[in-house]
Write a protein that binds this DNA or RNA. Structure first.
Lengths: 179, 179
DNA sequence: CATAATGGCCGAATTGAATTCAGCATCAAT
DNA sequence: ATTGATGCTGAATTCAATTCGGCCATTATG
């Protein structure tokens, strides 16, 4: 029994659900992770140690992946933001493309469904650097073509929010799906 | 002169450059903002108070916009990530679109150059919720069409990195631009 | 050229928060 | 009803954040 208990709790948390208080905590910490546990506890109606305990649990379970500084791109000389769509030939060419993860300019790499294969979010100093990055992408075997969308203005950019829209107003003109 | 000095320093910090040590600090804090100033100082070769002073300056100057918890989308029931391209009719329809900022599912809104007008990054519970979000987008006057790219796998997703690639290997097949 | 003034750093000291702990309440399972 | 597990609280302790005085280097100034 002891052994079994150990085994269950060894790696993952007992899959405890994220309850409404946890969600509040996540919301507060996404907003500002520098607040004290006293402050956090007050906001969610808990004592400091209780709040702390919750946060520790959220970290262990992986719900909080990290706590990190959000820095201003302009402050580090990266005013140019672009999304790059990449079409590739063949399949499994992904590992080769992963090499560009080394570039600190590359922030996201996704494979997507739709009329393109890969989608990158990149941030560079200027168009020159973007060109350099693109040329490097083209050097990757299997890359057929790219399309770049250069961002003119950013109106919203924020981390994953814990809240969820409960009900989507059912549009009148749509039929109700079976599933 | 006093007045002038005040004016210059009123809002922004004296525009002190982000030096190499600052960059190291930013790198460390992007990685993990929970470390102590003692630890931070050790990593960049500074005493705890000196490191603290630097961080305070970086915050005041806006180089560090915030410190926030990065949460696992799956933990908050948002396993579905998609990028939505929106074509709009007319100009200045932007304010109307901004209303969807209220949805916690919407993480980014950019206006982009290229064959589309707006680009959204959204994260929802399932395809049903994505459909609801899209229908809401279509309700916005001026929206002509949308294209959605549903993410199959995410290979890289990280905050703004302070490092910059110094030199891009000049591709052989390219002429040297005048500028 | 000498000298003040500034900015940034360090080490020691203080304040304040994180963390630990013992005890209690609640709920589920036996 | 009893046991065990979980999560909370308030007090106590430990550790880190923050403040402060003094030092050094660089830069402006007489």
């Amino acid at each position: 029994m002891d052994a079994e208990t150990d085994d269950v709790q060894r790696n993952r948390q007992p899959a405890r659900e994220v309850d409404p208080i946890d969600r509040k905590i996540l919301g507060a910490l996404v907003d500002d992770a520098t607040i004290s546990y006293a402050e956090l506890g007050e906001r969610v109606g808990l004592s400091p140690p209780a709040a702390h305990e919750r946060v520790k649990r959220l970290r262990r379970s992986g719900a909080i992946r990290a706590t990190s500084a959000i820095i201003d791109p302009k402050a580090v000389k990266k005013p140019l933001l672009a999304f790059v769509h990449i079409d590739t030939r063949g399949w499994g060419k992904t590992p080769e493309l992963m090499a560009i993860s080394e570039c600190p300019e590359v922030e996201e790499i996704h494979s997507v469904a739709g009329d393109t294969c890969m989608l990158l979010k990149v941030r560079t100093e200027d168009t020159r650097a973007l060109e350099g990055l693109l040329s490097r992408i083209y050097e990757t075997p299997g890359v057929v073509s790219t399309r770049s969308y250069v961002v003119l203005s950013t109106y919203l950019e924020r981390p994953v929010q814990p809240e969820i829209t409960a009900e989507w107003p059912a549009p009148r003109h749509m039929a109700t799906p079976v599933y």
